[in-house]
């Protein structure tokens, strides 16, 4: 079974922000909400600069999911971590927990008023019916259901950003690494997909988490 993951190849990423805008465009994400952002390490330092594009990594043992007071996260068969905006209470806990700063909120949070959390969906929509208007309005497009890959990865200017089945993209990446003989670090994987010794980590039960509206067949 496919397990969706991202790899951002920092030997290729050029901070072009295509991924970030592709996401805005595809999902009509409002100003201030950045499902994906691009970060440069050692900016301007000769020989040391590296750029990485980061969004929700759809962690195996997702901290956001663990801390959500209303348990509105769920995981799809493909390992995509999604959430239900209808139940989200905008408490911000997921953003405190997320290592990558993925959860975003439409407003600033004075009096705790943040609005519903929004984050990268791996272009897989949300619990609403696939391709429905409700789904689009709340979560954006559901490209996976259309048989497409994430918009950000598809439009990446240099194909630095790979999004898809973890094994497949790791293969592509490995081929590159072998060819160039360096830059083998798969950024963020340890944090996102590493085995957690945490006893609190429940194995996700995708089916049980699917809110009303359908069953996985």
């Amino acid at each position: 079974m496919a397990r969706m993951k991202f790899i951002c190849d920092s030997e290729r990423c050029i901070e072009c922000n295509s991924c970030a805008t592709a996401c805005k465009n595809e999902h009509e994400v409002p100003w201030g909400v950045n499902r994906r952002r691009v970060v440069t390490i050692n900016d301007g330092v000769i020989g040391q600069e590296k750029t990485i594009s980061v969004a929700c990594m759809h962690c195996s043992d997702a901290p956001c999911m663990a801390v959500c007071p209303v348990d509105c996260f769920y995981r799809t068969d493909e390992g995509v971590v999604l959430h239900n905006k209808d139940t989200c209470i905008g408490c911000g806990y997921c953003s405190y927990a997320c290592p990558f700063g993925a959860p975003q909120f439409p407003s600033n949070g004075t009096f705790g008023l943040r609005g519903k959390m929004d984050k990268c969906t791996f272009c897989a929509g949300g619990p609403e019916e696939n391709g429905s208007k409700a789904e689009f309005d709340k979560y954006g497009r559901n490209r996976l259901a259309e048989g497409k890959l994430p918009a950000c990865a598809e439009m990446c200017s240099t194909k630095a950003l790979l999004g898809g089945d973890g094994d497949a993209i790791a293969d592509i990446f490995r081929t590159r690494v072998i060819r160039r003989g360096k830059g083998s670090e798969v950024w963020g994987w340890g944090t996102a997909y590493g085995k957690s010794p945490n006893p609190d980590a429940k194995a996700p039960t995708p089916n049980a988490k699917v809110p009303e509206g359908g069953k996985v067949s």
């Binding site: 696939n130 391709g131 996976l144 995708p206 509206g213 069953k215 067949s217």
Partner: peptide
């Protein structure tokens, strides 16, 4: 095995 979480919903919605 269908990709979507919601079975035939794609067809339904179409």
């Amino acid at each position: 095995m269908l990709l979507t979480r919601k079975g035939q919903s794609g067809q339904r919605s179409a």
